[in-house]
Simulated assay, not measured.
Amino acid sequence: MSSLTNYGQAIASTTVALLQMLSSPPIGLEVTAYPLNAPRTGVSGPSVNLFLYYDSLITYREETQRGPSRVIAELHYLVSAYPGDDGDTDAGSHRAFGTARAAIERHPVLSVPLGSADVLQVWLSPSPLTTEVLTALWAAAAEPLRLSFAVMASFTLDASERVAVVGTVRDVVKLAGAGAIAVLTGADAAGKAEAAASVARELGKPLVTVPVTDIVGATLAETEEKLTRLFEQAEHRGAVLLIEEADAVFGVRPEVLDVDDPYAGLDIGSVLDQLGHAPSVVIIGLGHLASDELADRAKVEVRFPAEEGSAAARTSG
């Protein structure tokens, strides 16, 4: 599936696919994609114009989904009919309008190529458009009102590509920015603690080490309160934060959560959003694998297997 990083290409390719669908036989309309106030150059006879006037992005994650979250993109086009001449005595603009409207109804799904190996499935549906909205669109372009209808083109993309890379402690130091998240995974607890201390030293900042139970509550409001209090403490301002014993919240969790799990109803993505307000780098220590939510947000993962010398090895390079 294409990712949100290809959104610009997805928009352009969807517009081109709509143009081609309406202009190719047997429909055979003259079709443009001009701004509403652009001169109608290169057009002869009745035609229709596609104008993208609005888009929206809705992010979601299915309960059973693994990997990056997804986003539903909705593109709203104004499809307007133009006469072939000022008189339009044969109602050619009406015929073009009806032909385009019927074509959208008959072709509810477009297969839109993205590059050489990716195809985007785009669903088309007429979109309600009030007289007030229609009038406002044309008034904003300082153009007379045209016979028009709206169509929504929707498709799904991966919301993000995993950016975390398996690296070294030096890579964590390079993050440096406030709220940047790094993950230390593995059974070598001493090595992870030493690595976090090394990051703080390199950055010239204090290190604050807390267990996950001290900063995450059963609700998002409780978590926000705990984190705000932590960030505002004078001795912690600007400090590197190491969250230990974090598997219960940020590790891979079972598909069906235990009713006694204190974090069963917690939105992990929202907790990570709150950590984004941290004054410096946030380091999350895990004994095992990171959850999908954390893997989506983390910039660097450093692994610490339980073997002698692992800490020294991870600080090199």
Rank of each mutant, 00 (worst) to 15 (best):
R170G: 13
T5M: 05
V133Q: 15
P305Y: 10
L207P: 09
G45Q: 01
S148P: 01
G8M: 07
F250W: 11
L294Q: 11
T135N: 14
H288E: 13
G285A: 14
F97T: 07
S291Y: 11
G92Q: 00
R170I: 01
I11K: 05
I284K: 04
L110R: 00
H288I: 02
Q274T: 09
S310V: 06
L289F: 10
A193Y: 02
G67Y: 14
D86H: 06
P39V: 01
D214I: 02
L29M: 00
G285Q: 06
V165Y: 03
R66Y: 13
L145P: 03
L289T: 11
S127V: 03
A140V: 06
A264W: 03
S160E: 14
R146Q: 03
E232I: 07
L242E: 00
G115T: 02
R297T: 12
P35L: 01
L78K: 10
Y60H: 11
E224D: 10
Y54W: 04
A290R: 05
T213V: 07
D188E: 12
A182S: 12
D158I: 03
T59Y: 09
A153T: 09
I104H: 08
V172L: 06
L175M: 11
S69Q: 10
E132G: 06
V16D: 14
F149R: 05
Y82R: 01
A264F: 05
E105P: 02
T219D: 13
E232G: 10
S44P: 03
E308R: 15
F155T: 04
P68N: 09
S24N: 01
A239R: 06
V249Y: 04
T223N: 03
A264Q: 07
A200L: 11
G238P: 08
D88A: 07
Y60W: 08
S47I: 13
T15P: 12
P126C: 11
L230C: 14
I243L: 05
P83R: 12
S280W: 03
L266D: 00
A200V: 10
A100W: 03
S69K: 08
S93K: 08
F231K: 00
E63H: 14
D188I: 09
G98S: 14
